[in-house]
């Protein structure tokens, strides 16, 4: 668990953001589509190279570090479970990749599956489970990587409304004392999961404050619309 310092400039997209996340803190990033939220996650994960900037996690500067060595796990809107592996093998992927023996990796995977309430799915194939179940498994898979920082890019956007509360509860437990950033368009997600809300418009931070403050007394145009429920 480490604190994050991010500065990212992507000229082509008009993005210029500086953001700090304390160790153990969960920050919700919200803002209109195309504001650059996912790009920021890409920069932190090492999948996108900024024109200028810095990513620091704890006391490590990550700018020249390849994605696999960053200790940053990314959970996307789509679960993206590896279709050729069982659910258990998916969750065991990260431990196996860092050299844990198969047996131990499987035990670890089963523990993480239990944590998200998906242990009964262990033997199934990703094609045999529902979207909500798949996203649960994806959460378990990300946790099994034991990341110093967890990035969640609209993890509930592709799910039916009726399964969201259950996953939200799962994430609430999982994120409790983790450093995490969640991109969301849902005020309920922010309220349930985040300590702090950051609003980004046109590539810049326009509002940044404790969740209650931002949601109860929104200042930026987007936050006002988010709270009034006109964004779904």
């Amino acid at each position: 668990m480490s604190a994050l310092h991010l500065r990212a400039v992507i000229a082509r997209r008009g993005i210029d953001v500086t953001l700090d996340v304390a160790a153990g803190e969960t920050v919700a990033i919200t803002g209109p589509n195309g504001a650059g939220k996912s790009s920021l996650l890409g920069v932190i994960a090492g999948l996108l190279r900024p024109d200028d900037g810095e990513v620091r996690l704890g006391d490590r500067v990550l700018d020249a570090t390849p994605p696999h060595a960053r200790g940053v796990a990314l959970l996307a809107q789509d679960p993206l479970l590896f279709p050729h592996m069982s659910v258990l093998a998916n969750v065991a992927f990260a431990p196996r990749a860092r050299g844990v023996r198969r047996r131990q990796a499987n035990e670890l995977a089963l523990r993480h599956l239990t944590e998200v309430g998906a242990e009964t799915l262990a033997g199934r194939r990703p094609t045999e489970i529902s979207g909500g179940q798949a996203q649960r498994v994806a959460v378990a898979r990300a946790l099994a990587a034991d990341p110093e920082l967890l990035l969640l890019d609209e993890p509930m956007a592709s799910l039916d409304v009726d399964v969201r509360p259950a996953l939200r509860q799962t994430l609430r437990t999982a994120l409790a004392d983790r450093t995490a950033i969640i991109v969301t368009h849902d005020a309920a997600d922010a309220r349930a999961l985040a300590d702090r809300v950051v609003v980004i418009e046109h590539g810049h931070i326009v509002e940044d404050g404790p969740t209650e403050q931002v949601l109860d007394d929104p200042q930026s145009g987007f936050a006002v619309r988010l709270v009034s429920g006109s964004i779904k």
Binding site: P67, H68, D78, L80, A94, A97
Partner: peptide, 25 residues
């Protein structure tokens, strides 16, 4: 490349990603 990107953020080196994700897919 989406599966490969996920595999990388899960800590897999490029060779591991190639062997366990790219080729099987």
């Amino acid at each position: 490349t989406r599966y490969e990107a996920v595999a990388a953020t899960l800590g897999a080196r490029p060779t591991t990603v190639f062997r366990r994700v790219t080729l099987p897919l």
